[in-house]
């Protein structure tokens, strides 16, 4: 270390010692509980709720300042319309109609993704097929397929489900197969060591091991499904039975009823938030977080 040619440094000899550790009782409790404020700030739900409250406040103040309910109604007006329309059943009906189609399309998309990715991990051909299909269809906006769906399936739920499946399937398949690929080799070998193969191997080893990615895929798929559905409803309006939230927003715009447009949008946002922060959060807490696969 000290420059070349210098005298080699000598070890500095010190006496050895061996003693009883100093008394640490003055520290008090070694493990001390956090104060309620610290615990509150560590609560993600609280922090996010605070952000939501701040956003709501900004909305309200800006709308009050703008004072133009045709362009930007206040939050309180919007909530008023929402409560009213939920109470008289129109908004509730629209929401139900949307959710029903949404869940059907989502479930079909998830099921198809499960089949495709299982095939993809089982054979090389299946893998090639899935990656090619994903590369072709993933960048294609679901809504762009709507004209085609209308020609094939007519005006109604089947068309909506067709575009929904398209919107959901590729995002989930892509995430799931990338999750499968990142399953550690050792874990795969452990599974095969027990003689597992085929669907059992996928279900008992690969799926739980790739669950963080699968969950991400499910979340993205859910968001895509919402977007696609609302957009599709906006484009072709009422379906055979009753319109959904998209139709509600469309109607309100026709009548220049901006508060209702906002009420419709807010409903979409609230359902999205609930699914994300309640349903998916609960799944995360019970799975990937409990298993230490995700913080």
């Amino acid at each position: 270390m000290s420059g070349e040619g210098a005298v080699k440094s000598q070890l500095i000899l010190r006496p050895e010692f061996d003693r009883v550790p100093v008394d640490a009782s003055s520290v008090g409790e070694v493990v001390r509980p956090l104060s309620w404020l610290q615990r509150l700030m560590d609560n993600a739900l609280f922090r996010r709720g605070a952000i939501l409250a701040a956003l709501a406040l900004i909305w309200q103040l800006y709308a009050l300042w703008l004072h133009n309910s045709l362009l930007f109604p206040t939050l309180t007006d919007t909530i008023g319309v929402m409560v009213h329309d939920f109470a008289d059943g129109t908004l509730l009906q629209r929401t139900e109609a949307s959710l029903e189609v949404l869940l059907m399309g989502y479930a079909a998309g998830v099921a198809l993704a499960a089949v495709l990715t299982t095939l993809a991990v089982s054979t090389r051909l299946g893998d090639d097929i899935l990656s090619t299909l994903t590369a072709i269809f993933n960048p294609l906006p679901a809504i762009a397929l709507l004209p085609l769906a209308l020609i094939w399936f007519g005006l109604g739920t089947p068309s909506l489900i067709f575009v929904l499946v398209h919107g959901v399937l590729w995002a989930i398949a892509l995430n799931t197969s990338s999750g499968f690929r990142s399953v550690p080799e050792t874990l795969r070998m452990s599974g095969r060591n027990y003689g597992l193969s085929g669907v059992r191997y996928v279900v008992t080893i690969l799926m739980p091991a790739a669950f963080p990615s699968i969950l991400t895929g499910l979340k993205i798929g859910w968001a895509f499904a919402w977007r696609t559905l609302i957009a599709a409803e906006l484009v072709f309006g009422v379906s055979s039975r009753s319109g959904g939230l998209g139709w509600y927003i469309f109607e309100a715009r026709e009548e220049l009823n901006t508060s209702s447009v906002f009420a419709g949008l807010l409903t979409v946002i609230i359902i999205g938030l609930l699914v994300e922060s309640v349903l998916f959060r609960a799944i995360e807490a019970r799975t990937v977080e409990k298993w230490g696969m995700q913080r």
């Binding site: 550690p184 739980p208 799975t287």
Partner: peptide, 20 residues
């Protein structure tokens, strides 16, 4: 000819355990 539970393997990596 193929893997089987008559030969149980223990690997070096901790990932051999199922985290779930």
């Amino acid at each position: 000819v193929k893997p089987g539970p008559d030969r149980m393997m223990v690997f070096q990596e901790f990932e051999q355990l199922m985290p779930w």
